[in-house]
């Protein structure tokens, strides 16, 4: 997902720490208590969360780029306003999440610098290009849909600031998915050309969206630490299956075909999908997706070109402070 695919929990090195405190900490987690910023926590818990929350934040910010690509070309004023508001929301999500990550002791600037230096990951899905307007519908419907699937359980995450940020994010996300689905519905009720555009987008996005949930449980390098710490409450495959089961009827309603001829519904009603191409996933994660370089270049450009603005604001603030101090001294 935005984070979990990329995330491996830190080795649990509690042996090095006060064993009593660690046991108390785990007892609090087991009792569904929330951990707050100033509370004692194992170093590995702090590190795992810092990484997970900041990766999530990077994903929101990089995620602005593929959709931002269509703000200036949205086909109606209503769609333009909705898309701009949606992409703006993603920026807000990034901000909420960086703020949550900062409570663990690393500054936003440090986290962003790590991302710009290529040392931190973000969700692989945003390394795919948006080629047509139908991609905007598909992203809202499927990418935000998958994100919601992942984020709802995170609202109960053991770390208070992350859980609170996720509650805020989830409230905003449902508009995203609905606007995406509405775009798809409009296309599917439109001309043959529009319907073909919708199908083409689904064909291109389906498999990358399934990969968002991360490697299959069998091969996942996730230790159960994240689960034990109640950061993660469902496995990758559980969430992926939930998503597929929810999505198939939505696609059927649109009259679109999921590009998986081998998909069958099992006796319990679950839609069983075919094997996912994990080689592609690994390549995209390693920086070789169709847009990895473009995304990083765009983020670095904004950051570099904005440096003089941030500096001006800081220098002005210092001047103002000095003037106020001087005035007070008079």
């Amino acid at each position: 997902m935005y984070t979990q695919a990329l995330n491996t929990a830190e080795a649990d090195d509690r042996s090095l720490e006060d064993a009593g405190r660690a046991a108390q900490f785990q007892a609090r987690i087991d009792a569904e208590e929330r951990i707050e910023p100033n509370d004692w926590m194992p170093a590995a818990y702090r590190k795992t969360l810092t990484r997970q929350i900041s990766q999530h934040a990077h994903s929101e910010i990089v995620g602005m780029l593929p959709e931002g690509n269509w703000i200036t070309r949205a086909p109606s004023l209503r769609r333009k306003a909705a898309l701009l508001a949606k992409v703006q929301d993603e920026c807000g999500h990034g901000l909420y999440l960086y703020a949550a990550a900062e409570t663990l002791g690393t500054s936003r600037e440090e986290l962003v610098d790590a991302m710009l230096a290529g040392k931190a990951k973000y969700s692989s899905i945003f390394n795919y290009p948006t080629l047509t307007w139908a991609d905007i519908g598909t992203i809202g419907w499927l990418v935000d849909g998958a994100a919601i699937m992942n984020q709802i359980p995170l609202c109960r995450c053991s770390y208070g600031p992350y859980a609170r940020a996720m509650i805020r994010v989830c409230k905003e996300e449902s508009f995203h998915q609905r606007q995406g689905y509405e775009i798809m519905l409009t296309l599917c009720r439109g001309s043959d050309e529009q319907k073909a555009m919708a199908q083409d987008a689904l064909d291109r996005w389906w498999w990358p969206v399934l990969m968002m949930f991360g490697p299959p449980d069998a091969t996942s390098q996730h230790s159960d630490t994240s689960t034990k710490w109640k950061i993660k409450r469902f496995s990758n495959d559980e969430l992926r299956q939930k998503f597929v089961d929810a999505t198939v009827p939505q696609a059927q309603y649109l009259g679109l075909t999921i590009p998986d001829p081998g998909m069958i519904q099992d006796a319990e009603g679950h839609w069983r999908y075919s094997e996912i191409d994990w080689t592609e996933f690994k390549q995209v994660l390693a920086g070789n997706g169709p847009c990895n370089r473009d995304r990083m270049a765009a983020r670095r450009k904004s950051h570099d070109e904005g440096a003089w603005v941030r500096e001006a604001a800081a220098v002005y603030a210092a001047k103002r402070q000095a003037r106020q101090t001087a005035q007070a001294a008079e």
Binding site: L95, R108, A165, R310, A313, A314, Y316, A317, R320
Partner: peptide, 21 residues
């Protein structure tokens, strides 16, 4: 929540734009 701003005026504006949409 929280945010980053160079001074109080900018912080207030940013709070409005981020947290009261």
């Amino acid at each position: 929540g929280s945010l980053h701003a160079s001074d109080a005026t900018m912080a207030l504006q940013a709070a409005r734009d981020i947290y009261t949409r």
